[in-house]
Design a binder for these strands. Structure first.
Length: 723
RNA sequence: GGGCGGUUAGCUCAGUUGGUUAGAGCGUUACAUUGACAUUGUAGAGGUCACAGGUUCAAUUCCUGUACCGCCCACCA
């Protein structure tokens, strides 16, 4: 027995060298795995943002996936786990811009596009090293030879190819539509980047002028200078007779031509039952304008300032609102003013109130039908007519993408039902620049620039989720027909947090379906969020962050992994409790000491010689086999939290507390047959426990494996799973 | 407005198609302990499984409703 077992287990000494041992073995790459593997098992790492450092959410996700990958590898699969990072366009640029503003008092426009992109890229590069080393500290068995970054050359090419193919299929179009404009970030954002905040606000009821027959209610009087109609419900007895009539009024210095229209979308019960239609500054009004062919004058600009003529010109919207109310009071037009609670749309990133504005943007059409050349998705035949929405629906409905948690399936379908076209252009500089060039009215779309200097490339970049959506196959070399793509796609397993279900999961299904006719993954297990002890989300502003690296330094990566996995049913949120982690550090030491006991008491035994087992020992082995069956079943059904708890309980309270205690008299006794039988049994219990424990606690188990006098393989990571 | 989830020991949570006495970790109490274990063991205390109905031989588990927490979605101006 080696002397190191005389001291307590020291994770910080062991972990770095064990990780190096694995990396040097090449076993993270399925090509180097021993034996003959037929079936593949692929996972792509949800790429962490290059802006960030590892947080407990990553730590949990890494633990989960690594346990699954290690289990499958031991099952003899060609296990591949692909690492990567995400440029996170908006988040990263915003972060760097903020730093530059703080340190140099300069804006991005002072620096210019090229310089800003250079600075952001530099920041991203530094950040990348940090987070990747942190992922290594978790013990993640990622194949680093396949590392991908959303902005590297290959992924860039994948993105422009994807764009071009969808453009050619007519699924990407340029259109003037109402967008969510973030006046602070000076960019469009998608519906998913909006947070609805409940606020109290005033609902004003008034008429445009004394002569106007109908009073309207609004929370945004300042927008009314952009009104072109009043909409009422067609069945509303109060207003029915006015439908079709037109009026000229002067509202707050602005001449308006108002048409009364009947529209089903109007609620009779709300306010006065009449809606002032401001087509350019409200989504619902824009749609009404579509139906009734109305003018759409813009009265607010990108800086949330008024551009209407008259007294409101150049004022901020909130100031203008007060001015309009004052004017209404002066004119005696204000009929009512009441407090209501309202959900205000704000930008997730900047916190700014979203200003709906009409803008010329790039969109993905989710409803348009197209001919899919090749499809492996059940219910969608190759060569048939389909739509992106149908791809998303059928992929999950058919079970091709298995979402075992019913509740998330409901959320998913609900989201698809309400899905509208996806705005993919962003007015920032860091990211994938849209591969479209303009020359006058001509538009050219390709992966490379057209000949001739008169062509000007689109300034906008793509929504970061556009590239993330390609992730399962862009990381495997697409659009080239690589061996990797053929071998490892569709991937086997994906485990994202529930908050990312619509943002990412559904869009991966969309992209994979369109470009490959495949689903991106076979099973998607949605997990919960790691929260602090009080149940609050970790956030920088709350200052409640826990650095996983500090936890690892203190208790070891194995302990952190176990602490995050045991007893947390997948899908539920986790309240992080340090004392739980501490418990698993004790457990690592327990395993260490069990090893010491077994090795001390089996010195000199030749385990390759068969022995006759006592009845008691046969029973112990039988019990162990029953446990193996159970744990294997739990693993196959992704019930890791149960598998982990069972092996923990078995090792500590069965092996250590009972079996080892009962063995002492046998080992010290003079029945040599009984003793030899027990020695063999103990050794089997130890080695089997190490195997079962390995997916959860890879470091300590591998370290012990390395010191065993007799073992079937040189490394535990590739040792066959017991049966 | 629509949808989803939670409520089990002092705390954090399991409880895998309904089946003995509802479990674990931490905490707590008593005892033991130069012990494979500086990170140990044994034993114990602690529960109306949120509440009210229903289905069933049997409900923490299935159904209905209520309360309180939490989350997501949404173009009520």
């Amino acid at each position: 027995m080696q002397d190191k077992f005389l001291k307590p287990y020291n994770s910080s000494e062991v972990e770095p060298s064990i990780y190096k041992l694995w990396e040097n073995s090449g076993y993270f790459n399925p090509a180097n795995l021993p034996g003959e593997q037929k079936e593949t098992f692929t996972v792509v790492l949800p790429p962490p943002n290059v802006t960030g450092v590892l947080h407990l959410g990553h730590a949990y996700e890494d633990s989960l996936q690594d346990a699954v990958i290690r289990y499958q590898r031991m099952r003899g699969k060609r296990a591949l786990w692909v690492p990567g990072t995400d440029s996170a366009a908006i988040a990263t640029q915003a972060r760097v811009e903020k730093n530059i503003q703080k340190d140099e008092s300069k804006s991005r426009h002072d620096l210019g596009r090229a310089e800003l992109v250079r600075r952001v890229s530099e920041f991203a590069k530094n950040s990348e090293d940090t987070i990747l080393n942190q992922v290594r500290r978790m013990g993640a068995s990622l194949d680093w030879s396949r590392y991908a970054y959303t902005l590297d050359e290959k992924r860039n090419f994948a993105v422009s190819t994807a764009f071009k193919r969808m453009y050619d299929a007519g699924l990407i179009y340029r259109g003037n539509r109402i967008v969510n404009w973030d006046p602070k970030g000076q960019t469009t954002i998608s519906d998913d980047e909006i947070i609805h905040e409940e606020r109290t606000t005033k609902l004003y009821t008034f008429k445009y002028s004394k002569e106007f027959p109908i009073a309207i209610s609004t929370t945004r009087p300042e927008t009314k200078v952009g009104d072109t109609a009043v909409a009422v419900h067609p069945d509303d007895e109060r207003y029915k007779n006015f439908i079709g009539k037109e009026f000229d009024v002067v509202f707050c210095d602005v001449p308006l031509h108002i048409k009364i229209v009947g529209d089903d979308s109007v609620e009779k019960e709300f306010g006065t039952g009449a809606l002032g239609v401001t087509p350019a500054h409200s989504q619902i009004d824009w749609d009404i304008a579509d139906r009734h062919n109305l003018e759409r004058p813009q009265v607010i600009n990108e800086y949330a300032k008024m551009i209407a003529p008259g007294r409101l010109k150049d004022k901020k919207v909130l100031d203008a609102r007060e001015d309009v109310v004052t004017w209404l009071k002066e004119q005696g037009l204000l009929e009512q003013e009441e407090e209501i609670t309202q959900n205000v749309s704000t930008s997730e990133r900047t916190g700014a109130v979203i200003e709906p504005l009409p803008k010329l943007q790039w969109w993905v059409d989710v409803n348009k039908t197209f001919t899919i050349p090749h499809s492996e998705i059940p219910g969608i035949a190759s060569g048939s007519q389909t739509s992106l929405k149908e791809i998303m629906r059928k992929s999950v409905e058919s079970g091709a993408v298995d979402m075992p948690q019913e509740r998330f399936k409901k959320t998913y379908f609900h989201w698809i039902d309400n899905l509208r076209d996806w705005c993919i252009s962003r007015q920032i500089w860091f990211g994938h620049r849209i591969p479209v060039w303009y020359k006058g009215d001509e538009i050219y779309c390709d992966t490379i620039a057209p000949e001739g200097s008169e062509w000007k490339q689109e300034e906008d970049v793509l929504d970061t989720w556009f590239s993330s959506a390609l992730w399962t196959f862009s990381t495997l070399g697409w659009p080239e027909k690589t061996k990797d793509l053929e071998t490892f796609h569709p991937t086997s397993f994906m485990s994202p947090a529930y908050e990312i279900l619509p943002l990412w999961v559904s869009r991966m299904i969309l992209m994979s379906g369109f470009h490959l006719g495949q689903v991106p993954f076979k099973t998607v297990m949605i997990h919960g969020l790691v929260r602090d002890k009080q149940g609050c989300k970790f956030s920088k502003s709350l200052g409640n962050g826990v650095d996983p690296i500090e936890v690892i330094d203190k208790y070891g990566a194995d302990a952190l992994r176990m602490g995050l996995l045991v007893g947390t049913a997948i899908g539920n949120d986790i309240k992080f409790d340090e004392s739980k982690i501490k418990g698993y550090k004790h457990f690592a030491n327990k395993v260490w000491n069990i090893t010491r006991f077994v090795l001390e008491n089996t010195e000199g035994v030749d385990f390759s010689q068969p022995v006759t087992s006592t009845h008691k020992d046969q029973e112990l082995i039988k019990n162990l086999e029953a446990l193996i069956t159970e744990i294997t079943e739990d693993f196959d059904n992704y019930r890791l939290y149960l598998a982990a708890e069972k092996i923990y309980h078995y090792v500590w309270h069965e092996v250590a507390d009972k079996i080892l205690e009962e063995s002492k008299p046998i080992l010290n006794g003079n029945n040599s047959d009984e003793k030899l039988s027990r020695q063999h049994t103990l050794y089997t219990l130890l080695t089997t426990s190490l195997k079962l424990l390995h997916p959860f606690m890879p470091f300590v188990t591998e370290e012990i494996w390395q010191s065993l006098p007799e073992k079937e393989t040189d490394m535990l990571i590739v040792t066959e799973w017991p049966s």
